[in-house]
Structure formats: C-alpha cells, structure tokens
C-alpha cells in the first residue's frame, strides 16, 4: 500500500463517503474505473457506498470542472423556471481537483458559473496524467489489454507481450510543461502535497513552432487539423465552454461552415481556441478527448503564453483579479498596431 495512487484513492473514498454520510454534500464528483485499460469515467457518487467506486490514477484526463455547473443545478430541489430559489442554503457538491481543475473552478467562479460556497473541494497534487496515445505509440500500436501502474512505471500488457514504460515519459504534453500541479483552492487535502513544478521551459513547444516561417506554420496547422471530424469533443470536454448556443451553431449569421473542409475546420479550431484566451489553464482535456489525435491544445497554449508575456496573467490563480479579457490597462502593449510611414503613400 505504498503506491501514491492507492493512498490517494483510499483517502478520497474515505473523505467522500464521510461528506456523503454526514450530508454535507449531496453528490461527490470524481472518477470511476472505465471498461478498457487506460480509461476512467467521470462519476458522481451520491451515497457512501458509491464513494467506494471512486478511483485515482494516471488516466484521469478529463477536467471535472466541466461537470460542475450542471451538477450543482441537478442537485438543487426541482423548481419551475419562474419559481424563486428555495430559502436557505442550496445543497453542496464535493469534487476532487488538481492544479488545473481547481484553476478552472476559480475561472468558473469569476464568471458566475459555479458558486464556490456550494463546493467542497478536495485538493490533490497531480503527478501528470498519462497520454494514452503516447503509450500506444510506445507499443507500436499494439493492442493494450492490461495496464498496471506503479509509482514511476507502467507495466503494459499488449498482445501477450509485457513492457515496462517510464511513467513520466508517456505523460501528456500539458502535464510535462505544467507548473501549478497542486490545487490552488481547496477545502481539504488528499494525499501528498507537491510544490510547484519547475518546468524547464514551459513554452518550448510553442517557441519551436514560432520559429518556423508562416508557410511552414500553415503547413503544420493544416496537417494537424486535416483529420478533424467536427465532433466537438474538444469543445465539450472544456470547462470553459458553457454557452447556451455555441458560435458553431449560430445560423444567422453563420460564422463557421459545417463541413470538415479545411477552411471550416481551421476557423472552428482558431475560434474555439480564441474563446479560451485568458481563461485556459492548459488542462489538456481537449486534446485527451479528441478521438482523432489532433493537438489543438497548442493553440490555447500559444494564447496562454501570450497572455502571460503580454499581460502577466495566469488564468485561475487569483479569484480577486479580473480575467484578462474582461479588463485592460492604458499601458497595454500595442506593438502590433500598424504604424504607417508618413508621406510614403503612393500617388
């Protein structure tokens, strides 16, 4: 019982079941085992018995904050659209949160999507989640039938053969460049608490692309999105996406075409990413959810880099600061503004 994940799982189950037992929360959001190796499924425990199904491992790749607005609504007593809210405090929900998820909860609080006072956050330090595409690649695409997780290694069984992989080498790109791996807001701590990570260069992936020429970048981007099937898994896995009507569904005017042709796919991805500007915490859920393996996270990472470098902001780190795009400073950089050379106009 010295495996970190087992310790966290045990503590989590105990904490969740005590909250549910005492009635402090009506639901606890976490992950349960999936039906295939390397999968987990988001799971809402409503009884102390349910809480025993909660698990913690390196495959919790989705962002639980995504479920919170709907979950909080679902546990409120039923009422008609015009009925006043019930008197007294509304029921609470518990949730486990890593650094990025907790930052998303902060963003959701800032945007009035969740009520912090109705959440009991079990903070945890993420040790980086595993990218199953990387594991598949490491096994040359062989079918993985079983995977066992140790603290620093993964024992993978694929087509009869057993292979040991270094866990960190197959963690997601966003986890490898993460600096805030521990929850920034929490009510209770689960498992060992890690300090902020010192990622050598968190924007290296972005800088490598920035060094390319415009044509090379376009070639890279076109290649990246060419297999997009427009299933919107990236959008729906994102805790920042909660609009009633998404821009892709607007029909009058219609901003984005519906096909998977290059123009439509490119506009979709660029706009989706841009909507996350100043709010994205690089949780990587979009990329993990993508069935086609598109690395659309690089676009939001680029925005994260610019937001950090131009405006000094990191989303979700401080609930008292306004979100980047909802504020301004008179001295904001404006090097991008076109300055005409005076008197050089033609004719």
């Amino acid at each position: 019982m010295n495996n970190v994940n087992d310790i966290i799982t045990q503590e989590l189950r105990a904490f969740a079941s005590s909250l549910l037992e005492s009635g402090e929360v009506s639901a606890f959001l976490g992950f349960a085992h999936g039906s295939l190796p390397m999968t987990t499924r988001p799971f809402v425990a409503k009884t102390p018995e349910d809480a025993q199904k909660l698990v913690w491992n390196s495959f919790c790749v989705l962002n639980l904050a995504n479920y919170l607005p709907a979950l909080l609504k679902s546990i409120e007593p039923p009422r008609g659209p015009k009925d006043p809210p019930p008197e007294g405090p509304l029921p609470k929900a518990g949730v486990i949160a890593t650094g990025c998820w907790s930052r998303n909860i902060v963003v959701q609080t800032q945007e009035n999507q969740v009520d912090r006072s109705r959440l009991v956050i079990a903070g945890v330090s993420s040790r980086g989640m595993v990218d199953r595409k990387k594991v598949l690649k490491a096994l040359d695409g062989k079918e993985i039938t079983k995977i066992e997780e140790k603290d620093h290694d993964l024992i993978v069984e694929a087509d009869g053969a057993i292979k040991e992989l270094n866990r960190w080498s197959v963690t997601r790109d966003n986890c490898q460049s993460c600096v805030h791996s521990s929850a920034v807001v929490f009510d209770h701590w689960i498992g060992p608490k890690l300090d902020d990570r010192q990622a050598p260069n968190r924007f290296k992936q972005i800088e490598d692309i920035e060094k390319m020429t415009a044509d090379e970048r376009w070639a890279w981007f076109s290649k990246e999105i060419e297999t997009c099937i427009r299933c919107y898994a990236c959008r729906n896995a994102c805790p920042l996406c909660y609009c009633e009507t998404c821009f892709v569904d607007d029909s009058n005017p219609q901003w984005v075409g519906k096909s998977i042709e290059k123009a439509d796919a490119a506009i979709f991805h660029l706009l989706r990413a841009f909507h996350c500007a100043g709010r994205c915490t690089d949780c990587g859920a979009c990329e993990s959810a993508c069935p086609m393996g598109i690395r659309m996270r690089l676009l939001t990472k680029k925005l994260e880099k610019d937001v950090f470098e131009l405006f000094g902001d990191e989303a979700g780190m401080d609930a008292s600061k306004p979100l980047t795009m909802t504020t301004y400073k008179l001295e904001d950089p404006q090097g991008f503004i076109f300055e005409p050379k005076h008197g050089q106009k033609k004719e």
Binding site: F221, F274, K302
Partner: peptide, 9 residues
C-alpha cells in the same frame, strides 16, 4: 493577431 500568425496566416 498572434494566434493567426501562429497558425500560419
């Protein structure tokens, strides 16, 4: 503008 240039516009 930066995002557009990043994608190769």
């Amino acid at each position: 503008k930066n995002l557009l240039e990043f994608a190769g516009i």
